[in-house]
Write a protein that binds this DNA or RNA. Structure first.
Length: 587
RNA sequence: GGAGGCGUAGUGUAGCGGUUUAACAUGUCGGCCUGUCACGCCGGAGAUCGCGGGUUCGAAUCCCGUCGCCUCCGCCA
């Protein structure tokens, strides 16, 4: 740039600068060469401004500009002028004006990029990831990354204003059982031992409460070595929060206020607080999911009474064995084709249900493959479901968890199919009173539904030994539009209760001591009651940015096989490095 | 770990019911063009069809394997 100093970002140039001499710098977005007059669109992170070069007006600037190509880096100094009448470009924020440079400096040349630096150019994601620094130049990703910054800034400001301290916790820590697979880091100084990267700063934040910091938060990377998805990365970012002497409402209030500040500050959207609450049991009973999408209705209806009057073997068997018969009503679904209904049945089957019964209540009567099993007529079941003429009733039967999962998936598919899910709504809800334990078929034992430090409800304490699956906990999730945004709990701070939970989870005293001894010991030195929550930042930003993939809001994401296609990680290392780490690769 | 989809000039696609000079668009290069903004017009170059093997007189095309990317299930306290 020499002695030049940029005076404006490209996107800042407007009618306010007309007549002024400005210096802009950026990338050549496009050049349009008309033989004589030459237009160069100059781009930076704020937008695009048009530079005009005319050989009759300024031959030296023209001949210099004539050299440039796409993505060259240039600076230009010149006067801002209103465009000639009729030449304005309404698609450009700077479209009312243009710059007539009297001097251009070529700051760097560029190879022709493998794809256009523009939105909407549908390039294979692996190509984009290989050249991520070019992909990131695209306006959509620039917007996402800037939005992410804004959101994080608001979150930090909010917690700071409320007396929370951001405290860093170790990245090299200790492997703990339960939960996801750990990423391991070999210790050179201690042969044969490994650090683990944190799945969350859970234990450290509890120790910070024991240490008396009272209100903690951290925007922190965490790591889980599990298979990936569009909204799952091996490393991702949490907003981790913990408080001493809280009650649950206080934690909810902070999260609600933080979310309100984020939506207002980053998108200008007012959201309504407090968020509604729903027990886990109700969520499962009515929506078949612990993260119900409440942007639309179609709640489950219990059809046991009506189904009990049928001779349909599937219904009778479900009810006789303590299971359920439940249905959802699709408004206007009676007009659906057989093919569409079959698709719904496939959704049910893909999600573990045996099948899907249905009854379409058309103007000419009811059409249903199971009508023949209803000696008194199937209309009674339709009425019990609250269906009206024109509606479609979809029914699943079986054990409660099977009905929940199968019909829950059908509800989402049918809601989407029927166009009932408004995309412009924000349906926040707290799901509370999760069960303390669930049963792991795989491990043949109880596992912690949230984590082993979650406090049980006091009135359910006596159930821990007798009916552990019925024990409710102080765990809660924040759900937005069917996605889990945050998850937390009030923790156990008493050693006797913690011991009881460990016993129920099948840990011996010795095992508990080996794995969590430091925490249990800390609790003996005056642990305050405490609790907190962790919010998935990437998902929140993705939702706010309107993208389905968190890869679009992470600057340098990994593929679904955990690879970074740009730096080509993971990669083999030298034998010398392995030797130092006392590691030998299995042949 | 399992299922499915995709892989052809730089990029996006067509060709896939077997024999083509592997087509189109865009980009790129050259020429022309003084108000465009996805500028336009003319011309050129650019692909051993992801990789390996098999079937066949003949394979981008069919079969097997493998690698990569994407989606879903399992998994993700």
């Amino acid at each position: 740039m020499g002695e030049w100093h940029r005076t404006h970002y490209c996107g800042e140039i407007g009618t306010g600068q007309v007549g002024a001499e400005v210096v802009v710098a950026g990338w050549v977005h496009r050049r349009r060469d008309h033989g004589g007059v030459l237009f160069v669109d100059l781009r930076d992170r704020t937008g695009i401004v048009q530079l005009v070069f005319n050989p009759d007006i300024n031959p030296s600037a023209f001949s210099r500009a004539d050299l440039v190509h796409s993505e060259w880096v240039i600076a230009a100094r010149g006067k801002v002028q209103l465009r000639p009448a009729g030449m304005e470009n309404p698609n450009l924020s700077t479209g009312a004006v243009e710059i007539y440079p009297n001097e251009v400096r070529i700051l760097n040349t560029a190879r022709t990029p493998p794809f256009y630096i523009t939105d909407g150019d549908d390039v294979d994601e692996s190509v984009r990831l290989r050249y991520r620094y070019l992909d990131l130049r695209r306006p959509a990703l620039q917007r996402n990354i800037m939005l992410r910054h804004r959101i994080v800034k608001i979150i930090r400001d909010y917690f700071d204003s409320q007396g929370f301290l951001e405290i860093e916790t170790p990245v090299l820590t200790r492997s703990t059982p339960e939960g996801a697979r750990d990423f391991l880091v070999p210790s050179r100084l201690n042969p044969g031992t490994f650090y683990a990267l944190p799945q969350s700063p859970q234990l450290f934040k509890q120790l910070l409460m024991v240490a008396g910091f009272d209100r903690y938060f951290q925007v922190v990377k965490v790591f889980r070595d599990e298979d990936l998805r569009g909204n799952r990365q091996p490393e991702f970012t949490q907003v981790d929060v913990e408080m001493s002497f809280p009650d649950r409402d206080e934690i909810f209030r902070h999260v609600e206020a933080m979310m309100a500040a984020v939506y207002k500050g980053a998108l200008g959207i007012e959201i309504k607080t407090p968020f509604p609450r729903m027990s886990w049991q109700e969520a499962m009973d009515r929506y078949g999911s612990d993260k119900p999408d409440l942007r639309f209705g179609m709640a489950f209806v219990d059809l046991a009474a009506a189904a009990g009057k049928s001779t349909f073997e599937v219904f009778r068997r479900a009810l006789a064995t303590g299971g359920q018969v439940k249905g959802i009503v699709v408004p206007g679904g009676a007009a659906w084709s057989r093919k569409t209904i079959d698709q719904m049945e496939n959704v049910a089957k893909d999600n573990g249900a045996g099948g899907l019964a249905w009854a379409a209540w058309g103007p000419d009567g009811v059409r249903s493959p199971v009508a023949k099993y209803f000696p008194e007529g199937i209309e009674a079941m339709l009425r019990a479901a609250g269906a009206a003429v024109g509606d479609l009733l979809l029914v699943a039967a079986g054990p409660a968890p099977v009905v929940a999962r199968g019909l829950g998936a059908v509800r989402l598919a049918a809601g989407t199919q029927a166009g009932l899910i408004p995309t412009d709504q924000l349906a926040f809800t707290w799901v509370i009173d999760f069960p303390l334990f669930s049963y792991s078929e795989e491990e043949g034992r109880l596992v912690a539904e949230h984590h082993p430090f979650t406090a049980p409800h006091a009135e359910d304490m006596d159930l821990i030994d007798r009916e552990p699956l019925r024990v409710r906990s102080w765990a809660y999730d924040l759900v937005l539009n069917g996605e889990e945004l945050a998850s937390g709990s009030i923790r156990i701070h008493r050693r006797d209760i913690q011991d009881k939970v460990f016993r129920a989870l099948g840990f011996t005293q010795a095992e508990a001591q080996e794995r969590f001894g430091f925490l249990l010991e800390a609790f003996e030195y005056g642990a305050p009651p405490h609790g907190g929550i962790a919010l998935g930042l990437d998902r929140l930003v993705a939702l706010m940015a309107g993208t389905g993939s968190i890869r679009d809001v992470i600057a340098f994401p990994k593929t679904s096989s955990g690879a970074d296609l740009m730096v080509r990680a993971p990669a083999a290392v030298d034998k010398e490095q392995l030797d130092e780490l006392h590691i030998r690769i299995k042949p």
